[in-house]
Design a protein around this nucleic acid. Structure first.
Lengths: 227, 227
DNA sequence: ATCCATAAAATCTTATCGATATTATTATCA
DNA sequence: TGATAATAATATCGATAAGATTTTATGGAT
């Protein structure tokens, strides 16, 4: 067996296109509703249509784009109904993730990172840096999914978080981030550390459900029907 | 707008390849571990590599096959660990599905179909027709996912059921189907009909968790490490 | 003389491209 | 308005280049 087999990433065009498009969708460079024919995208990325198309198929499977037969690829917009569907599932899945995390030995590095995120988030909240706080909120939830030890669960939570990523950002900006969110995060973290699986699981669940209510309120009061 | 817009399925080669391969994987014609280069598959399906490859990418996203760089496509085998991961998620998701179903007006047709499956399953059990019973068991669980009204939830449950489909079949054959499974199904159905969301949800959850224990036992006693 | 290690060659498979056939949509005209 | 032509974008193909794996040679060591 060759010596250096750990570093496998050999970056194919498909992977490139996939990563780039996904990043652009998540950070809003390609906003919801954006639509373009495959050849245009291929030209922009400097490759032929084939790898672009394969990347788009993957993105479609992850619920980030829609491939419309003669219309090209479209970045999906998220409606209130989508948010309801996704948050309901997330509530259960994050609850499960925390329960699993609390019931096992979570790697130290992960716990440290969580703790750092929490204190950095406190700081951001004090400084009123909502933008940064939103970023940390997102990272906290993604990291929690990593602590559960169930790879499929982690992947599914991550995928759902991706789908609501922009909606989260847009709407959190409208809201002054309530301190209660930060409190919940702390509670979840402590529950995992203390092995209190039932408490942690329930807090995670209701945390997400409360987030859904906030979302509903914000969406309705802002008059947006899609994000 | 054109008159007939409902019947959209215009069957492209990709869809064809996807449906056919998926069916062959689920029914075991392409057993776990089966592996073949793309050109072979393409020849067998009577089309060029492009649509086959696109279908394979979709199947990979659904966790049914693995695309190995210079080795071709491989039908994934399921290990005990995979089953644990999947059943744990299913327990939560099916619990949620039943809770949602019990809390809303489920279309009559669906309830009828569920009821028919239940009585047909009773009959199969009496006749000792395990094969048929296993089929009905599968259909029951898929149908339950359809009653929840959350399209994403339904899709996710379906995808997970697909991934464990063959494992379920293989292992159920080793087991004489315990009557308790049938009882649970009836309880879930009644809970949905009566709108008892908490009861239904909890039965669905523990039903799946009990299934996991059975699986563990069967896998260990049969000495199989993969299915 | 046989066997292992290494290097070179052959082979196999994918990754990617450019071209074409197909077909939905739009525009045009009676 | 309805039929027909033009357009545009995809769906699909066949070919090629790049890269990995396997096979085959080759040289030295026992």
């Amino acid at each position: 067996m060759p010596p250096a087999m750990l570093a496998k990433a050999k970056s194919t065009r498909v992977d490139n296109a996939y990563e780039r498009l996904k990043a652009e969708i998540l950070n809003g460079e390609l906003p919801p509703g954006f639509q373009a024919p495959e050849p245009d995208i291929a030209t922009r990325l400097g490759m032929s249509r084939t790898p672009v198309r394969e990347a788009l198929i993957r993105l479609e499977a992850e619920g980030l784009v829609d491939l419309i037969p003669r219309r090209g690829a479209k970045v999906l917009a998220i409606s209130l109904k989508d948010i309801c569907e996704i948050f309901e599932i997330l509530a259960e899945l994050e609850g499960l993730a925390v329960r699993k995390a609390a019931g096992r030995e979570v790697p130290c590095a992960l716990m440290h990172e969580l703790e750092e995120i929490l204190s950095e988030a406190d700081r951001a909240l004090l400084e009123g840096n909502i933008e940064h706080w939103a970023e940390l909120d997102d990272r906290f939830h993604r990291l929690i999914a990593q602590t559960c030890g169930n790879a499929r669960l982690e992947a599914e939570v991550t995928s759902l978080l991706n789908q609501v990523h922009r909606a989260n950002r847009v709407l959190l900006r409208l809201n002054r981030a309530p301190a209660s969110r930060a409190e919940d995060h702390r509670k979840i973290f402590e529950a995992i550390r203390a092995g209190r699986d039932d408490i942690g699981s329930e807090v995670a669940r209701s945390h997400r459900l409360a987030g859904l209510e906030t979302m509903k309120r914000l969406l309705q009061s802002s008059g947006l029907s899609q994000v």
